[in-house]
Amino acid sequence: MSAPGTIDTDGTAGPDQPESLFNRLYTGTGAFPIVQRRRLYFLLTGAIVAICLASIIFRGFTFGIDFTGGTKLTMPAGDADTGRVATVVEETLGQEPQTVQIVGAGNARIVEVETGFLTSDEIYATKLALVEEFQPVAASGEVSIEAVGDSARSESWGGQVTQQMIIALVVFIVIVFGYMALRFEWRMSVAGVVALFFDVITTAGVYSLLGFEVSPATVIGLLTILGFSLYDTVIVFDKVDENTRGSKHSSSSTYAEEANLAVNQTLMRSIHTTTIGILPLLALLVVAVWILGVGTLLDLAIVQVVGIITGTFSSIFLATPLLVWLKEFDPATKRQTAKVLARREKAGATA
């Protein structure tokens, strides 16, 4: 008999007594019917993917200068502010700059201005206007303004980075599918790869919806989070494999119930892993925004925070429910489920 408010490992409930949320999380007794409500989570994940794909297709991405090409002007910040800098650049060029941001802290603060590709004359005129307006003086006592970026080279380089990312992603997915098929079974491979695709689409969709700038650091971070998502999924699948080993001969619980129990047993571990993974990234965000200014660290931290959250969601609410859905097409699983239900119906009629 179960303790009050718990659910037996065979999926049956104990005495109907209230039990705290934290107790259910820590005991991992299968109190959360995640697999049993898989249709709800399938609809939810489908809606999320649809929204993200729609944003990617119709809204697109905000690509950084490394992908689109252009010119970047930097100078010591001094007492300059982004509004005044943008005004000077717009009056000089006749067009608004793409971005104006202050990076760094203290005497190391600099202003970064990104524009479309400028000619040598336009670069010279903009530099002269900024010098006259702000008198930027570096620590050495000399004016320090530089222009970098070439439209054709940047677009070519951005295309190469994108191509290499796609190749790396395909190779990673093939390796993951092969490993999980050998370690577990092909259905787990399919569910795990679907969860990875969900993570990539969702993370990319969030970037598109919120208009975050896509930089090389974003690409690196996106590939990094796939490892985290896979780790979390494999942990859950390992527990599912342990619980369902020999389940074909069991008459006490179905495959779905044992899989749901496995998710519950690893739920607290997933929460701890996600929390521990996000905390240093939040610290990195604080450092990037308040101390060093907006830059590569911010791009890297944002994509990993979004990816870790989506990876945790997919490993709990998508991968295992999808595995169970695929498994229920297996004739052996169907027979075992029918045997368990028939035994319970008989026991209920006898009682």
Rank of each mutant, 00 (worst) to 15 (best):
W186N: 03
W186H: 00
W186Y: 08
R187I: 04
R187V: 09
R187N: 11
R187A: 09
R187T: 12
M188E: 05
M188Y: 05
S189P: 09
S189C: 03
S189V: 11
V190S: 05
V190G: 06
A191T: 02
G192E: 06
G192F: 09
G192K: 05
V194S: 01
V194L: 09
V194N: 00
L196S: 14
F197T: 02
F197S: 02
F197A: 05
F197V: 09
F198D: 10
D199S: 11
D199C: 09
T202W: 08
T202I: 12
T202P: 01
T203Y: 00
T203M: 09
T203N: 05
A204F: 12
A204H: 09
A204P: 05
G205N: 03
V206D: 05
V206G: 12
Y207T: 01
Y207N: 04
Y207G: 01
S208N: 03
L209D: 07
L210G: 09
L210W: 12
F212Q: 06
E213Q: 04
V214A: 07
S215I: 11
P216R: 01
P216L: 02
A217G: 06
A217K: 04
T218G: 00
I220E: 00
I220C: 03
G221T: 01
G221W: 05
G221E: 10
G221N: 03
L222R: 03
L222S: 09
L223F: 15
I225N: 11
L226C: 06
G227C: 13
F228H: 05
S229A: 14
L230Q: 05
Y231A: 10
Y231D: 06
Y231V: 02
D232W: 11
I235D: 03
I235F: 05
I235S: 13
V236Y: 14
F237G: 11
F237W: 15
F237L: 15
D238M: 06
D238G: 13
K239Q: 14
K239D: 06
V240R: 10
V240C: 11
D241C: 08
D241T: 09
D241N: 14
D241G: 10
D241F: 08
N243D: 12
N243M: 10
T244W: 14
R245C: 06
G246S: 12
S247L: 10
K248I: 13
S251P: 08
S251G: 15
S252D: 15
S252E: 15
S252Q: 15
S252Y: 15
S253P: 04
S253F: 12
S253Q: 15
T254M: 07
Y255P: 02
A256I: 01
A256P: 00
A256N: 00
E258A: 15
E258C: 13
E258N: 15
E258H: 14
A259S: 15
L261V: 09
L261R: 13
L261E: 04
A262K: 11
A262Q: 11
V263I: 14
V263E: 03
Q265I: 13
T266F: 05
L267W: 08
L267S: 06
L267A: 04
S270R: 11
S270L: 04
I271T: 10
I271H: 12
I271E: 13
H272R: 02
H272V: 07
T273G: 02
T275W: 02
T275C: 10
I276Q: 00
I276P: 00
I278A: 06
P280D: 00
L281K: 08
L281A: 06
L281P: 04
L281I: 05
L281Q: 03
L282A: 07
A283F: 02
A283S: 01
A283G: 04
L284I: 02
L285R: 00
L285N: 06
L285C: 09
